[in-house]
Design a protein around this nucleic acid. Structure first.
Length: 930
RNA sequence: GCGGAUGUGGUGAAAUUGGUAGACACGCUAGACUUAGGAUCUAGUGCCGAGAGGUGUGCGGGUUCGAGUCCCUCCAUCCGCACCA
């Protein structure tokens, strides 16, 4: 009887749907397990074989956890706001909702064909107003909160207002604004506060809010007509579309993720994530310890704050350098230098980011004519503008110590600025040329710091600054606040309206603020975002709304929470439900979101936790990053300048070039020449040089899947040909889940014939039959060996060895001609996470109620069946295995030794010598040392 | 430059605690069957060698009775960050 996978898979997919087999509900007292797949963006191209790799793994794992008695939450949904749908809308005039819905339908169809056990009743879509209402609600919570550095958590802004009412604000720097660049804040008393008008109060509060409107240098992408967050810019180009990006000073909505920098860094330690992602996040957060030093201008008018990690070198400062974008440059520059400075600033600002980065070696800068006083010696120090100083890091001003910094050294040498060495590197420094950049040596030429080692010098310098009031210890982060406004249409409207010029939050009762209909999805003539086109789109019919929308990562920062309670109309999530499901136990997805989504989701989680809205502080406990599946392209060789194609083996002596051909015309590297001739008209009368065998062989190359390389393999055609169970197992069989690997369909037949053999075990006589007799010891050993191994492989997420184990098991049972119910029934359960359709079918056939497989229990491993009484000892001489010797495990070491020495092969390998030593590891090996 | 990951047959890979390297599968070779299917079954297949045997996990060294696995040096590939003060 044939393994009719098509009928079987169709039947069970239909069954699961109509019987809601995978619907999940909270069950008091039953342990929960939350498995999450990364939120897909439903692109128009549909899925290729690389996408489902992670989905298959998480599906297999959640089915396993269910069988182990866990209440498993395994939802799916769509991150449906985003640029491609909007770009398509601009081109075609179609509303993005329409294309988005079509794409989602296609995705769901493809996913369902693979037999995933998603609870679709929990599906969420970020572009659905019933969802983004709560994204907007969270934005309002951010707007209405500040980060209290004393309690080290977010609090309602009211607690800050109360503080101002009682104490006013003292003026020591900008303590409350944690993380990002600190700005001098003016002091006021409690009385002042109470006298301030609403607009003044709002202006004071704005920079404290975790969602705030502030002026900052942002990444402006003219081609996309919007600002972008740092993680959306790669090497000066937009991540989506690869358009150039420039820095621009703009008023923008931002989220104060920097307030969480330290916690985001610290809590990485407890996460079960890959080292590389943790490392990437650490780099991105970029914590460095050092000091702020204040340099006052010659005339005492202005203070420049500098961040340094080497306060010990303070006596070696020979100039200050400011970023060309720094806003004090104009004020500092003297008349005489004005023209030069303006020219330089203009030039650097107009150099693209990319140019500036590519050109690291050349030195450029200009003197402002201004001097600042050294805070300790009062010596005058020149202030320069230099484009090696970045406006986005630290304060945008550097204290240059040429003797002990590579870049400062280059700069000072180039402009002939005199400098002083303040560290004696000791013997190591004897022949070493400057700069001496090691954090090692003794301080010299440094007044009170003389004689200290670098490490001591750092803390001594900080104490010195603090007692002189010219500096303080400071921890600096590379992480910047996240720009949150996008001048685009297809995103969540930001729930803010303007009362005159004061931005105010919408009342919760006004949510959701839905996207208005507009005539075309382009900016207005005045340069306003597309939402500016909406007619009569006003709050309470007279206040204008904010025209920016939220970025793509807004909805994906909390979607996992909504899965817990997707229909809730009263709250973003029900407290009881979130207390039951808590955070995600296993998150499966690509590693490409390390600095974007994964950081933002952690940030929002910590924020919601601070407000007491969720009971956990990290969203994703364990994460697995599936590797990329690479395409296997087929290439054929063509004689240069001729319409002649040459098979791989006949290339010698010919001048050829290679070209990609569509992989659908190639099977096992053999080209279907007739299909190729029909591919393009110009190939119809081409000549071909074949192998002697008569076949035409192609070359291959492993590279990313892409349309232009004709190497895209969709799951659909493989499901059609081999079935979903085969595809699921084959994708797992390819190798470890985290590894990137080439896609090669040749191997899929091995997995497919495994499933056929498995099916055949139940049809040994040609028709369905399972025996009720007692199984043999061999049968039982095979089964229990398999139970143990499969269970172990699950625990370490080793799905490829899992598939091998099933193959070995079926090979053995086939040899044993075993079709006993007591063996096959547990085997069905073991295989069911991997191949859910064939196992449902067989589960029924052996006499179980339809659909009860999902309710059954994971088979129990019984070690008794694996007890061995003898062992086939490998006998090694000097570590090399020479022969095997079967021996009873009950033998003592001494008896075993005698047995080895008595063995005829032993003499040959002893070569007449006496063994120096014999290592005997009972149950493992014997090693004779000569 | 800094950090991370990975290097094992013709190919994808396995070896979980230092104990028989290459399981399992593809491919290939030979054979069987046949209603010729992209089917099924049997045997073989790391490399060198006729064989005995030698040799073999990126290179070189070390620890050990024993190293793919532990330590050191170097090399290659991929990924992240990068004028970060």
């Amino acid at each position: 009887m044939e393994y009719a996978f098509k009928d079987i898979e169709k039947k069970w997919q239909q069954f699961w749907k109509t019987h809601h087999t995978y619907k999940t509900e909270e069950v008091e007292g039953k342990p929960k397990y939350f498995v999450l797949d990364m939120f897909p963006y439903p692109s128009g191209a549909g899925l290729h074989v690389g996408h489902p790799l992670g989905y298959i793994a998480s599906d297999i794992y959640s089915r396993y956890k269910k069988l182990c008695g866990f209440n498993v939450l395994h939802p799916m949904g769509f991150d449906s706001f985003g640029l491609p749908a909007e770009q398509y809308a601009i081109q075609t005039g179609q509303h993005p909702t329409k294309t988005t819905q079509e794409n989602i339908a296609r995705y769901k169809e493809q996913l369902n064909k693979l037999g995933f056990n998603y609870d679709w009743s929990r599906e969420v879509q970020t572009s659905d107003p019933s969802y983004y209402r709560w994204t907007q609600w969270i934005f309002l919570q951010l707007f209405n909160s500040w980060y209290n550095p004393k309690t080290n958590r977010a609090e309602p802004i009211d607690s800050l207002v109360d503080q101002f009412k009682l104490e006013g604000r003292s003026s020591h720097g900008a303590e409350p604004l944690t993380g990002d660049i600190e700005e001098e804040q003016e002091s006021f008393t409690a009385e002042d506060w109470n006298r301030f008008s609403d607009s003044v109060k709002q202006e004071i509060l704005m920079p404290y809010r975790l969602a705030y409107l502030g002026e900052a240098f942002v990444n402006w992408c003219p081609a996309l007509g919007t600002v972008l967050a740092n993680d959306e810019v790669v090497n000066g180009y937009s991540e989506r579309g690869a358009h150039p990006v420039e820095r621009k000073l703009l008023k923008q909505w931002s989220l104060r993720i920097t307030a969480y920098a330290q916690r985001l860094l610290d809590d990485l330690a407890v996460l079960d994530w890959s080292e590389s992602i943790k490392e990437t996040q650490k780099n991105w957060i970029g914590r460095s310890e050092g000091a702020s030093v204040f340099f006052v201008t010659e005339n005492g008018g202005k203070t420049l704050e500098v961040f340094t990690t080497r306060p010990d070198t303070i006596f070696g400062v020979s100039y200050l350098a400011m970023a060309p974008e720094h806003n004090l440059i104009q004020e500092l520059t003297t008349e005489a230098q004005k023209a030069d400075v303006e020219e330089y600033v203009y030039r650097s600002k107009n150099r693209s980011e990319r140019e500036r980065m590519a050109d690291v070696s050349s030195v450029s800068g200009v003197f402002t004519g201004a001097y600042v006083k050294h805070p300790l010696t009062q010596n005058l120090i020149p202030v320069w503008v230099a484009d090696y100083v970045l406006v986005g890091y630290g304060t945008g001003v550097v204290m240059a110590v040429p003797a002990h910094d590579e870049r400062d050294f280059k700069f000072a040498t180039h402009f002939e600025i005199p400098f002083l060495s303040v560290i004696d590197g000791g013997s190591k420094n004897q022949d070493a040329k400057l700069p001496w950049t090691e954090k090692d040596g003794t301080l010299v030429n440094s007044g009170p710091l003389n004689g200290l080692m670098v490490k001591e010098g750092i803390s001594a310098a900080i104490s010195l600054f603090e007692s002189n009031g010219c500096g303080k210890k400071r921890i600096n982060f590379r992480l910047r606040d996240a720009v949150f406004g996008r001048q685009r249409y297809w995103g969540e409207p930001i729930p803010i309206y303007y009362d005159g010029s004061i931005p105010k939050p919408l009342p919760v009762s006004a949510l959701p603020l839905t996207l208005p209909e507009i005539d075309t999805y382009l900016p207005t003539e005045q340069g306003d975002p597309p939402l500016g086109r909406a007619e009569n789109w006003k709050f309470e019919s007279h206040c204008t709304y904010e025209l920016s929308t939220m970025p793509g990562w807004a909805g994906s920062s909390w979607y996992f929470i909504r899965y817990v309670d997707p229909e809730n109309k009263e709250a973003f999530v029900d407290q009881e439900k979130i207390n039951y499901w808590k955070n995600v136990d296993l998150y499966v997805g690509g590693a490409e979101h390390a600095t974007g989504h994964l950081l933002y989701a952690r940030f929002w989680t910590k924020f919601l936790y601070d407000l007491g809205l969720i009971p956990f502080n990290e969203p994703f406990e364990k994460m697995i990053n599936q590797g990329m599946i690479l395409g296997r392209s087929s290439l054929i060789h063509r004689v240069k300048g001729e319409n002649t194609f040459v098979s791989k083996g006949k290339l010698e002596g010919l001048d050829t070039s290679s070209m990609h051909v569509d992989i659908s015309m190639v099977n096992a590297d053999v080209l279907d020449v007739e299909a190729f001739k029909k591919w393009r008209p110009e190939y119809a009368d081409a000549t071909f040089v074949f192998e002697d065998s008569g076949a035409f062989l192609c070359d291959y190359e492993v590279e990313k899947m892409s349309k232009s390389k004709y190497n895209v393999q969709t799951p659909d055609e493989l499901v059609e040909r081999y079935g979903a169970d085969t595809l699921r197992m084959y994708e797992m069989f390819l190798g470890p889940i985290e590894q990137s690997k080439p896609w090669d369909t040749q191997g899929i037949t091995g997995v497919h014939s495994f499933l056929k053999r498995f099916w055949k075990l139940f049809h040994l006589s040609g028709r369905f039959e399972v025996k009720e007799d007692d199984p043999t010891q061999d049968n039982l050993r095979t089964l229990h060996k398999t139970i143990r191994k499969i269970t172990e492989d699950f625990e370490r997420f080793s799905f490829n060895t899992g598939v091998s184990t099933f193959m070995i098991c079926v090979n053995e049972l086939m040899d044993q001609q075993c079709n006993n119910r007591q063996i096959l029934e547990p085997l069905i359960v073991l295989l069911s996470p991997y191949a859910p359709h064939i196992t449902e079918e067989l589960w029924c056939k052996v006499g179980n109620p339809e659909g009860s497989l999902a309710q059954t229990k994971w088979p129990k491993f019984n070690p008794e069946f694996l007890v061995e009484t003898s062992h086939d000892y490998p006998i090694s001489f000097n570590g090399k295995m020479r022969f095997k010797l079967k021996a009873e495990l009950s033998l003592s070491k001494e008896e075993l030794l005698q047995k080895v020495l008595a063995h005829p092969e032993t003499d040959k390998w002893l070569e007449g010598k006496n063994p120096k030593n014999v290592i005997i590891v009972p149950g493992k090996i014997v090693n004779v040392v000569l």
